[in-house]
Design a protein around this nucleic acid. Structure first.
Lengths: 216, 216
DNA sequence: TTTTGTGCAAAGTTTTTGCACATAC
DNA sequence: GTATGTGCAAAAACTTTGCACAAAA
């Protein structure tokens, strides 16, 4: 006997937000969006629902490049393009003239259920960013982290750090900003790459001279 | 100025073992193999080397379905087939008659650097297992976990559990079998789904009546 | 001798799960 | 009222990193 599914408010909002997304979001991204409507929802609920909904065939879990799982409300099989720099994933129109069906003799005994085609390259935004970087290239430049410009979150973290007299941990930083500890550690990683943050002791961080300049 | 790479013994063995693999291994799988030759090597070294070697272009990191990263010694671009049940990844011969190149007008402004084609289905082994399951199908049947039949590892874990008088943790089980703790928890998850193992307390497991029947 | 790499343990990152309570049907 | 779902916290699963020491060039 199968479990009966219920349409809870949380589930509804999750589905709803997913349907609004064009770039197939990760559980985490979706959580951030859903939280704006349901501030008390937990990440675990988002994960659980994405799992249940894709199990039911209401949405699709994507098997795609990148570290995190991504989800798609579009059920029909279609192809994707993936930005190797910012990890965005978008749909792509592709006339699959199935000239590349696997022939039984080279399927190695597999029963083939389907095929994914994934293009990769740089999205328009990242192409633009790279161009700008090339112009004012510095020694600290780093293709994959967009050096030079600070994102809002990075600025927030860096500012919090600039107010500390001694090295502090990511939880201290989280407490003095609007950010989640998880987000803070992400930003710190990026800031370390840029040379704006140093880690004089394990899990303790402080702003560097470079970082102070970047804030100014 | 670029760092100079050194050929250490560890690095050599890692490369060597990778070259011997036909199914593109995860870091973990490779670690298990390498450990047989260098028992004192650490998983971190394997990860670090795979990262360095793929950074140098000596091996390839695969962007492929599944939870863990996989590596490939074959540098030339080629296509893969993925077993949706056991997660094995194999090469596949595919005459890409590139009829499906992305045309500039539908690349959405991306600069396309390449394309991955991935087939998925059931590998010969899993097809076989599924067939056998269908014969003796039970109410507990589950497509993705292979209910009914016990894999060798599952049987080993279940037997270990049947010898315990009280619920025990996965590390205790690992100690009394030939398996790694990591593998044990995998098997326990599968066994729980099948109803053969219960978890009366957090992280404590015991065999169920169902499980005892399955062993007999 | 200097630079690069290793083992270890601890942390970081993403996902899953047990539990007590809440909600939909 | 009961089966199903939620929030929370803790754990699991996978990967990365700081450090002190070791090995390669």
């Amino acid at each position: 006997m199968k479990k009966q599914l219920r349409m809870t408010h949380q589930r509804e909002v999750i589905l709803d937000e997913l349907r609004k997304c064009k770039t197939h979001p990760t559980a985490d991204e979706l959580y951030e969006r859903v939280k704006k409507k349901l501030p008390r929802i937990s990440l675990a609920t988002v994960y659980r629902n994405l799992e249940v909904l894709s199990g039911e065939g209401l949405i699709r879990k994507l098997e795609i490049s990148g570290r995190q799982k991504r989800y798609d409300w579009e059920l029909q099989e279609h192809d994707h393009i993936y930005c190797i720099q910012c990890h965005r994933v978008e749909n792509i129109d592709l006339k699959r003239d199935r000239g590349f069906e696997v022939l039984p003799e080279n399927a190695k005994g597999y029963s083939v259920e389907g095929c994914r085609v994934e293009f990769f390259g740089l999205c328009p935004k990242c192409r633009q960013t790279n161009k700008m970087q090339k112009k004012g290239e510095t020694t600290m430049g780093c293709k994959t982290c967009g050096t030079g410009t600070l994102s809002d979150k990075q600025r927030e973290v860096l500012e919090a750090l600039s107010k500390c007299n001694e090295p502090c941990g990511s939880k201290d930083i989280a407490a003095s900003t609007s950010l989640e500890p998880k987000q803070v550690s992400c930003q710190i990683t990026a800031l370390k790459k840029k040379g704006y943050v140093a880690s004089p002791a394990r899990c303790k961080y402080e702003i560097t001279e470079e970082g102070k300049k970047a804030l100014a």
